[in-house]
Amino acid sequence: MRDYSIRVASPDDIDSARALMLDTVYRDFGTGYVPRWHADIIDPATAYLAPARHTLLVAVDPADGAVVATAALDSRGPAHPPNPRRLADRFPSGETAQLRRVYVRPEHRRRGLARRLVEELLAFAAADGGYRSVYLHTDPAVPGAEPFWRSLGKVVHDEREDLGGGNHVVHFEIPMGR
């Protein structure tokens, strides 16, 4: 097993992190880049490195120094729309640590990287002291995503159960201080 290093992204990691994120939205999500959903991918430095309460982590392959996984956290709760109003009310911006961009290159999956990255994000949120909840949403069509998040948190809303299916997104809360 490789001994991946996990660290806070530096400005030198931004191009590699962006490439990994873009590859993921094209390959796994099938949507490609959608500006209203993915603006943080184009400018991750502004989204995650500049604000004090935000962070972007990368996992680096020791064999070649390549960024093989990302995970981010910001202080924005789910916006309404497109998310249901009750979620925006339950997870307000400023009090909610939202997990984002937990992506692992396919050839590096099933090695515990996503779980390690999430644990680091949860420690960051706890150390901040201002977050009262941890929220995320996922596309259940992405292989392995829904079972992974179910292993860490609880479903607070499944849009597939909404009349018309909503956006087919599953929303989760992960307990603080896991």
Rank of each mutant, 00 (worst) to 15 (best):
I14C: 07
P92S: 06
S133I: 01
A79C: 08
P82Y: 00
L20F: 09
A47Q: 08
A79R: 12
V102E: 03
P140W: 06
P81Q: 08
P92Q: 03
H157Y: 12
S10L: 14
M1I: 11
I42R: 15
M1G: 15
A141Y: 00
A39E: 12
H38S: 05
D162W: 10
A50E: 12
E95H: 13
R110Y: 01
T138S: 08
G94Y: 05
M1F: 05
F29G: 02
E107A: 15
V118F: 07
E120Q: 14
W37P: 00
A141H: 09
T24C: 11
G144T: 02
V25F: 01
A145G: 04
G30F: 01
T24Y: 15
L56E: 10
L136I: 11
I174S: 05
L57D: 06
E119L: 08
P35K: 07
D23K: 07
I41R: 06
Y103R: 09
R110G: 01
G32V: 11
R111E: 13
V102P: 00
Y103L: 04
D64G: 14
L87F: 09
A114V: 09
L99W: 08
V102Y: 05
D139R: 08
S10H: 13
A45E: 15
P81M: 03
V58K: 03
R160V: 13
H38R: 04
E173H: 09
P84H: 11
A69S: 11
M176F: 09
N83T: 06
L163V: 15
N167D: 13
R116Q: 14
I14G: 08
D13F: 12
W37E: 07
A97M: 10
I6V: 11
G130K: 07
L152R: 03
A126S: 13
R110E: 06
R90Q: 14
D15S: 15
E161G: 01
S16M: 09
S10Y: 00
R7E: 02
V68F: 03
G77E: 04
T70M: 02
R109T: 08
E173T: 10
D28S: 10
A145E: 12
A72M: 02
W37K: 06
A47K: 07
V68P: 03
A141F: 12
G165M: 09
L113R: 04
S5K: 14
V104C: 02
R76K: 13
A88W: 11
D61K: 06
N167F: 14
P44F: 06
Q98I: 00
V25C: 04
P175L: 11
D128G: 12
P175I: 10
L163T: 09
V155T: 14
G165S: 12
A114N: 07
R111Y: 00
A141G: 13
H108R: 11
V142W: 08
L122M: 12
T46A: 15
T70H: 05
Q98V: 07
